[in-house]
Design a protein around this nucleic acid. Structure first.
Lengths: 332, 332
DNA sequence: TTGTATGCGTTATCAT
DNA sequence: ATGATAACGCATACAA
C-alpha cells in the first residue's frame, strides 16, 4: 500500500502539498496539482482512512441506528443512506436497536465509541430527553420522527397529506361510507394519517362519526381486529382506509372470511407501498412512502452540514398514490 | 475523550501496560490489571479505533457486499452479521452491488480501500476467477455461494435437502402428481432444489417426466409462467413444489385465475419462508431458509479466523419445513 | 504557493 | 512483569 510519502517523492513535492491536493485544494498551483494527481494514479494510491481519522479527529463515518435490520421499511432506507454517503466517500456503520429502548441506547453508545461524526436515527424508542442530550454531543439526524428542538435535522413524511390523499381517492371513486383502520393511537404517524382522513371527509362534506375510526396496531392482526370492531358496532361501509399495507392485508383477510370480494364488494387502500403490497391478491392500491428518497436526502444533508459547514434544512416528503387493484367504485 | 495516557497516569503504570490489559492477556499481574481496569472505568475510557487501526494495521472491520440492500433475503443476513460482529467488538461496513457485476466489483474496491480485514460476500455476479484473485489479497467468506477453492470459508444451504423435504412432505400428504416450478436453470440453488425434488420422487417410486419440471424465474411472474407452461403441455397435477415463495405466490395467482382453491383443489409449497409467506392467503407452507443463523455463523467464523487465528470450517445449513395452509391432501 | 515540524492515540519492539 | 520509545499515515499550524 503506497502512502502519501511515496506520492510526494514521486511528484517531487512535500507531504503537505499532497495532503492539500487530496483535501480539495487549498490553494495549490494547477500544475503541481496535476503532477500530484498523476503520481497518485501511477502508484494506485488510496488514503489510509484510519490515519486520516486520527489526524483530523474525524472518522468520515456516520452511524446509523435502525430499530430492525430486517423490517420491510428499513431496506430502502439503509440502501439510500449507504449509496449517498458512498458518493461523498463517507461511510456508514449500521447498528440495530431491535426495537428495544436499552438496546437502541446501546447501539448509540457503540457508535459513539466508534467516533462517528454524526448519527442518523430511525428509531422508535428514544425519547426527547435523551435525544436532547445526545444532540449536544454530536449532530443527529432523524428520519421519520418528529423532534421539537431539531426540526432542521429532520426528514419526515407528510402523513396527514397521505391520509388525506388516500381518503380523497376513495371519495373520488364514489365512496361515502368510508371507515378508517388506524395504527397505534400513541404513534404520531398513525394519528396524522387519521387527521388526513378527517380532513378529506370534512372537505367533501361527507358525514362520519368517531365510530368510523379504530386505532389498533400497524400489522395484519391489527387490520383484522379493526374490522371486527366495525362489525360489532354494526357500521356499514363500502371502503376502508388502512393505516398501513399490513393492516390493509388484514382487511383483505377479513373480507375473505366473510366471502366478500375486494374490490367488488369492498374497497381497501393501504399505506406505505411495501413489497408485499404487490404480492397479495388483489394487489394493493396504496400510498407510496418514499423511504429511499428520504434516506438519500437525509444523508446528503448530514454530509453537507458535517463536512461542508452548510446549513441543515429538514424536509417533508409527500407520499404518492399507487393505483393497483384493491379499490373500485362502490356497487350501485 | 480520555486516552490511554490518562488511564496510565491514573493507574500509575505505563502506556504499554494499559495497552496490554486491553488486548487481553499477555502476562500482566492480576493486581495491576485490576488497577488499570478501575482507572478505565473511572474515566469512562473507550479506545480510539482509528488509532488502533493505524498502529495495528488492522481496521477491526469486515466489509460486506450484498447484491441488494432491500431484498427480502438480505435483512436477516445483515442483521445476523451485524449482531455477531458487535458481540466481538468488530464492525461491518455494508456496500451494495445492486445486482450488477461492475458495481459489485466497485463495492469490493471501495471496501478494500477502507482496509477491511476481510470480506463477507453475498453476491450474484462475481465469478470464480475474480474471487480467486480476491482471496489472495484478503480473506473472503461466501454466503450462499459455492466456490471450489474456498469450501472452508463457505456457508451454504442444503438446497437439495430442502427440495427433497418439500417434495417428500407433499408425497406424505398423499400427492403423486407433483410438478416442480423451479428458478433460473443457470442458478445453482435452483438446480439443487430440483435435484431434491427428483430424489424424493424417485425414492418413493413416483413416476414423473421432464415435463413435470419447468425452469423459469425466481419471482411471481416466474411462478405464473411455469404454471402456464404446465397447462399448455396438458399436464395433470394436484400439487406444486415452487422454487421460492415468490414463485409459490405466482402459483396462487394462477390458481385464482382458474377459480381453483388452494389448498382444496391444488396444493403449493414454497421455499425460503420470506416475510410475505405469512401475508398471502392462504398462508404459505414453505421451507424455512435459516439466513439469519447462516449469517451469524459466517461472521463468527470470520472473526475467529481473522482475529484469533482459528481454522475456518464452512458449514451447511438445513432448511426446515414450516407448515401453514397451502398444502392439503389431494381430493379423493 | 509550498515546505517543515509536530501531534493524533495506539501497538509493538526492545529493554529492564 | 513492566517501562521507554519508535513507528503507523496523515492533517495542520506555522514558516518561508
Amino acid at each position: 500500500m503506497p502512502t502519501i510519502k511515496e506520492v510526494s517523492a514521486l511528484a517531487g513535492v512535500s507531504l503537505a502539498t499532497v495532503s492539500r491536493v487530496m483535501n480539495g485544494s487549498d490553494r495549490v498551483k494547477e500544475e503541481t496539482k496535476a503532477r500530484v494527481r498523476r503520481a497518485m494514479e501511477e502508484l494506485g494510491y488510496t488514503p489510509n482512512s484510519a490515519a486520516q481519522s486520527l489526524a483530523s479527529n474525524r472518522s468520515n463515518t456516520l452511524g446509523m441506528v435502525v430499530s430492525w435490520l430486517d423490517g420491510p421499511f428499513y431496506g430502502p432506507v439503509m440502501s439510500g443512506v449507504e449509496e449517498e454517503l458512498r458518493r461523498y466517500n463517507k461511510h456508514v456503520i449500521i447498528a440495530s436497536g431491535h426495537g428495544d429502548a436499552e438496546q437502541e441506547r446501546d447501539a448509540v453508545n457503540y457508535l459513539k465509541a466508534r467516533q462517528v461524526d454524526g448519527l442518523i436515527l430511525l428509531t422508535e424508542c428514544l425519547d426527547q430527553d435523551y435525544l436532547n442530550k445526545l444532540s449536544d454531543e454530536l449532530p443527529i439526524y432523524l428520519i421519520n420522527q418528529h423532534y421539537d428542538g431539531l426540526d432542521k435535522r429532520n426528514m419526515f413524511l407528510d402523513n396527514e397529506g397521505g391520509g388525506y390523499a388516500a381518503t380523497k381517492y376513495l371519495i373520488e371513486q364514489g365512496h361515502t361510507k368510508i371507515v378508517c383502520a388506524a395504527g397505534q393511537a400513541h404513534k404520531q404517524d398513525a394519528r396524522e394519517r387519521v387527521m388526513g382522513y378527517r380532513r378529506a371527509m370534512e372537505e367533501h362534506g361527507i358525514p362520519y362519526t368517531e365510530d368510523y375510526i379504530e386505532h389498533t396496531v400497524f400489522d395484519l392482526p391489527g387490520g383484522l381486529a379493526a374490522m371486527h370492531l366495525f362489525e360489532q358496532k354494526g357500521i356499514e361501509f363500502t371502503a376502508v382506509t388502512a393505516g398501513s399495507d399490513e393492516m390493509a392485508i388484514g382487511v383483505l383477510e377479513w373480507a375473505k372470511q366473510h366471502h366478500l370480494t375486494v374490490p367488488d364488494d369492498i374497497s381497501v387502500i393501504g399505506f406505505d407501498n411495501q413489497l408485499v403490497a404487490n404480492y397479495v391478491s388483489p394487489r394493493l392500491t396504496t400510498m407510496d412512502f418514499p423511504a429511499y428518497d428520504m434516506a438519500k436526502a437525509c444523508a446528503r444533508m448530514a454530509v453537507h452540514e458535517i463536512y461542508h459547514k452548510k446549513e441543515p434544512n429538514g424536509f417533508e416528503f409527500k407520499p404518492t398514490l399507487v393505483v393497483r387493484n384493491s379499490v373500485a367504485p362502490p356497487k350501485a
